[in-house]
Amino acid sequence: MSTDYQQAREALGARLRELRFSAPGGRLTGTQLAQRLGWPHSKVYKLEGGRQTATAADLRAWADAVGQSDTFEELNARLRGFESHIRSWRRQLAAGHRPVQDSWNVAVDQARVIHAWEEAVIPGMLQTADYARHIFLRYADLQGTLRDTDAAVLSRMERQKWLYQGGRRFHALVWEAALRTLVCPPSVLVGQLDRIAGQIGMDTVELGVVPLGASLRVPAANGFWVLDERLVITEDWHAELWLDDAETVALYLRIWRTLRESAVYGADAQNVINRARRALNKG
């Protein structure tokens, strides 16, 4: 995933270097350009080498400084193109978690059928408010971002109304590890386990649990969501990826169906959840 992001940055960097070389007044050195821009010269080389992501303001300044202001729209289109698919957490969370949740709400609201796989956390659509609050706090601490926790939780809870609309279907797969991971106090996790146990059997929810001892045909890697067989949303530590090409969507659905072969449902899923709950009570 980071490879796609890096390739996109490098391609933009190569175009920036090309513009520096072809400045109307003659080729500029990196140092000369940095002086014109009032930047440390290292920023010029980081942008050209794909080691730093440009902002729209950076691209505007670059185009003006190399005497080719008319190239800004092209450069900015390149930036928007890869950032619409590869959404860095640094940028997304600059205004807090609430805007990210609102974007998810729009995407989910348009979907009729969702397939989800989570290996480490309970899927957001099934979370309690208390559990979601602790997840947001953990990530705010990790990324050093604005703590708009209450607003983010409210937005995530709003999204769950989708589950109570006719004609919708949420196919969720959860690894047993997610039932046991203490990303929140034990009492909060107990409440969360009670919640998902009660969601088994809902008309709109099909919840499968992959036991820790189950044989897996593929490794239990990153969580991902497939919306209506048209959009995949997945994430890595640096960014969230929104992928909509048909080949990629088909691949993720194939992975989901492969993982599903290891899952248990109904009473068997309840047993796995109850086992995790009993382990918490013993602790």
Rank of each mutant, 00 (worst) to 15 (best):
A129N: 08
T258P: 02
A178D: 00
A56Q: 14
Q127I: 04
W237D: 09
L207K: 04
P123C: 02
G266Y: 05
R277P: 07
V218R: 11
V100G: 13
L154Y: 12
V232P: 01
N271H: 14
D102C: 10
G191Q: 10
E240I: 12
R133G: 09
D236S: 11
R20M: 01
A23Q: 03
A151T: 13
Q165D: 15
Q199K: 10
G25D: 13
L216E: 01
L37A: 04
G201F: 01
R15T: 12
D64P: 06
L79E: 01
Y164K: 12
L207G: 00
E235S: 07
A279L: 15
G124A: 09
G96T: 06
L231I: 04
A57W: 05
G283R: 08
E206L: 13
R217Y: 06
R80T: 11
L227Y: 12
I86F: 10
G67F: 05
H134Y: 14
G49A: 02
D70Q: 13
Q199G: 01
Y5L: 11
G13F: 01
A111L: 03
N76E: 12
Q7C: 07
A77K: 07
I135Q: 15
E176N: 02
R78G: 11
H171N: 13
F136W: 08
S155E: 08
H97A: 15
V188R: 15
A56I: 07
A279C: 03
G38P: 04
I255H: 08
W237F: 11
A56H: 13
T29W: 03
A220D: 00
K282C: 10
L227E: 01
R133S: 08
M202C: 09
E119D: 11
E83V: 13
L241G: 00
G144V: 08
Q68F: 04
A263H: 01
G50H: 02
D245T: 07
W89F: 10
Q192A: 03
A129V: 05
V44Y: 00
R112H: 13
Q6P: 05
Q160A: 06
F224C: 02
F72Q: 05
Y45E: 09
A178G: 00
L259T: 00
R168K: 11
R15K: 09
A197S: 13
T248K: 05
G191S: 07
G50P: 04
T31W: 09
R169K: 08
